[in-house]
């Protein structure tokens, strides 16, 4: 059993607090409360996270070792190893990145900054380049680029779990929020000469070419035309021998079919907004040290189990 140096005054008081069996218990519950706060607050952005998570976790290391200094040598060895693993994991967590914040990116609206909480206040931090995102069935395609320099690109899965690494940043999907401006029109196109209808989604300012050479372009979109007539799209149709531009409305399916002259009858199915991606952004870093720390903790805990079995037998 190791011998401790004799302590007096405030040193003895501090040691009594650190070595108290209640200290790890109280710190553990404090950490649990901090994690519960994290469960309901914006991820990683709680201004008190240093006080409720990092500091007690670091104190826990000392409290664990101090508690078992009076125990058997075998038990102390495993407790000390666990504490070393915990300390390594905490250092690894610090090395794995930081400067966490949130960025909002829409299809047509790239961003150059993200919002960080510094000392309890929101502040815009620069990404060093323009971050753009487009949503598809495979995920969110992210690009980070400047005019003269392409920093990187990645596809972020929509499961919200994994991270994408671009340049010196790591990004994960927090939310897909509905957009606030109309971005594209979903059209149902029926051949006037007979045949099955087809569907196309066409963005504002862009066009679609149909199989017979007809070009369809969406010039403007309105979520509620004249604040009275509902969603509408101004659509230009160019075909061999003619051209027509008109406003088309949702829920008026037979208007163009009756009066239109183009080879395709157009029905406006939906004026849709493009979702905005809310991304968690942080400075990227290696996770090897944190992984190693947890590996050491597992080894120490299993060692403790076998040490307990041997003590039980003897």
């Amino acid at each position: 059993m190791p011998r401790l140096p004799r302590m007096r005054g405030p040193w003895a008081t501090a040691w009594a607090v650190v070595a108290s069996p209640w200290t790890p218990w109280a710190l553990g519950l404090w950490v649990a409360a901090g994690a519960a706060l994290g469960l309901v607050s914006e991820p990683g952005q709680h201004p008190a996270s240093g006080l409720v998570l990092q500091l007690p976790a670091a104190l826990l290391v000392f409290a664990l070792v101090a508690r078992d200094l009076g125990a058997s040598t075998a038990r102390l060895r495993w407790a000390a190893l666990y504490a070393a693993g915990l300390a390594t994991a905490l250092v690894g967590g610090w090395l794995a990145g930081g400067e966490a914040g949130m960025a909002e990116v829409g299809g047509a609206r790239p961003t150059e900054s993200y919002t960080r909480t510094i000392a309890g206040r929101s502040a815009a931090a620069h990404l060093g380049a323009q971050l753009g995102a487009t949503l598809s069935a495979d995920g969110a395609a992210l690009t980070l680029a400047m005019k003269e320099h392409h920093v990187g690109e990645a596809v972020l899965p929509l499961d919200g779990v994994r991270e994408a690494h671009i340049g010196r940043w790591a990004l994960h999907l927090v939310d897909v929020a509905p957009g606030d401006e109309p971005a594209y029109a979903r059209l149902k196109l029926t051949p006037r000469g007979g045949g099955d209808p087809i569907e196309r989604a066409v963005r504002t300012g862009s066009g679609a070419a149909l199989e017979d050479g007809t070009q369809i372009a969406v010039l403007r979109l309105s979520p509620d035309f004249g604040r009275a007539l509902g969603p509408a799209a101004q659509i230009q149709v160019d075909w061999e021998g003619g051209s027509a531009t008109a406003w088309h409305f949702v829920d008026s399916p037979d208007l163009d079919a009756r009066v239109g002259a183009a080879p395709w009858a157009i029905e406006l199915v939906e004026v849709a907004t493009e979702p905005r991606l809310v991304l968690g952004v942080r400075r990227d870093g290696p996770i090897g040290v944190a992984l190693a720390g947890f590996g050491v903790m597992i080894a120490a805990l299993l060692g403790l189990v076998f040490a307990g079995r041997r003590e039980g037998r003897s």
């Binding site: 790890p24 553990g28 469960l39 942080r282 990227d284």
Partner: peptide
Amino acid sequence: GGLPWRPAEGALWAVAGLLAV
């Protein structure tokens, strides 16, 4: 593939620490 500090990460680290103590 990294260590973003989200509610799930906070809960997992805290659970590991609490059970160890």
